[in-house]
Amino acid sequence: MEIDPFIFRLSIFILSIFVGYYVVWSVTPSLHTPLMSVTNAISSVIIVGAIIAALSDSSESIFDTSNIYGFLAIVLAAVNIFGGFLVTQRMLQMYKKKKK
């Protein structure tokens, strides 16, 4: 009997939750704010779906309703990607050790 590919995705999902659990517990509390901004940036990988939606071929025009939702999602996700990574970078630059 063949295994449904959904089961493989579910396995990846559940294993990733465990990876996330251990990785996040090892994050030092002083970096919890950058943690939030970087998780925010990486969750914008949802842009992948937005690009597929925007580029999907349509018989009439490239501004079909579903394409428009794709374009809107691209803008939102792009704000997050650039904003999230850059603000994280800005914060992390500020963490300095004592000069001796």
Binding site: I12, V19, G20, W25, L35, T39, V45, V48, G49
Partner: peptide
């Protein structure tokens, strides 16, 4: 899951558990 995209599934799980731990 809808898009059958591994990167998105892994990221979603990471971010979801990160927020829950915080």
């Amino acid at each position: 899951f809808t898009l059958e995209n591994t990167a998105l599934i892994i990221t979603g799980a990471l971010v979801g558990s990160s927020g829950a731990i915080l």
